[in-house]
Amino acid sequence: MTDQASLLQEEIRITPKFRVAGRVEGLFRTEAPEDFQTVAVESLELTFEGIPGDRHAGMTRKSGGREPWYPRGTEMCNERQVSILSGVELSRIADLMELDEIRPEWIGGNFMLSGIANLTRLPPRTRLVFESGTVIRIDGDNLPCRFAGEAIASNYPDREGLDLLFPQKARGLRGLVGYIEKPGVIAPGEAVTAHISEQWIYPRD
């Protein structure tokens, strides 16, 4: 190993892998593929395509504004099969927006979890292992958009500007997106463990 390579290794701080325990507080899905808002359900069946019949189900999806490196509508891998939210973070967003509440259904959530602090900041590659044996692999955080803000605004008709306020206040709190690594059926109240991989910050130079 060269001196430069040795120095680089010394400068990179590595955080060992660890686990965090949580619980499923609620499960939701769209009633039709064209819907955005979800409804509460007693269980969720997950396949390699996501939630069958849900808006975001599928092995592939069409690129959009989140993928400016592709022409809009390009077929690509669907790493956004499910939306995972934290009740604590939703309450924080509601406080920042001066609202009574924000429900997971309003912004298209599929999972409401508790017990995992700073859920939105879980790093990519994290595996959510459920008590049933089902596994979701986290792709990354879900950037808040005006579309979700409009859904929130529809529940507060007396407030103006909520569609634009949501993207401003919800960044870093809007939850995660991921895909199904191991299919199964999940029920509310089920334990879930976040398996967080070894982490590091890749240096620019």
Rank of each mutant, 00 (worst) to 15 (best):
V82S: 11
R72Y: 05
V24S: 09
K62R: 07
C77M: 11
P16N: 01
C77P: 14
E49Q: 10
G87M: 02
Y70K: 02
R92M: 15
M76D: 06
L85G: 00
I14A: 03
E75V: 03
N78W: 06
C77S: 15
V82M: 12
G64H: 01
G64N: 04
V24P: 09
T38D: 07
R29I: 02
E79I: 13
E67Q: 04
R55S: 09
G58A: 07
S63A: 07
Q81I: 07
E89Y: 09
L90C: 01
T60A: 03
L27Y: 08
G87I: 08
Q37D: 12
S43Y: 07
G58T: 05
E31R: 11
G73E: 12
A32G: 11
G26W: 02
I51N: 00
F28R: 04
L90N: 02
Y70S: 01
T15H: 08
P52W: 13
E45N: 12
V82Y: 10
E75I: 03
R55E: 03
I84L: 03
T47Y: 14
T38Q: 11
P68Q: 00
T74D: 00
G26K: 04
V20Y: 02
R66P: 05
L44H: 06
H56V: 08
W69P: 00
V24M: 15
S43M: 06
P16V: 00
R61D: 02
S63L: 04
V20T: 05
R80W: 12
F28W: 09
S63T: 13
L46F: 15
E79C: 15
G58E: 06
S43V: 00
L90P: 01
C77I: 15
G50F: 05
P33Q: 10
F28A: 06
G87H: 05
G50R: 06
R23K: 11
A21D: 08
N78S: 08
L46Y: 12
A21Q: 12
V24C: 13
E67A: 01
E34I: 14
A21E: 13
R80V: 07
G65P: 03
H56C: 10
E42W: 05
E75R: 01
P33G: 06
F48G: 12
V20H: 04
R80H: 14
L44E: 05
I93A: 07
E75H: 03
G26M: 06
R80E: 13
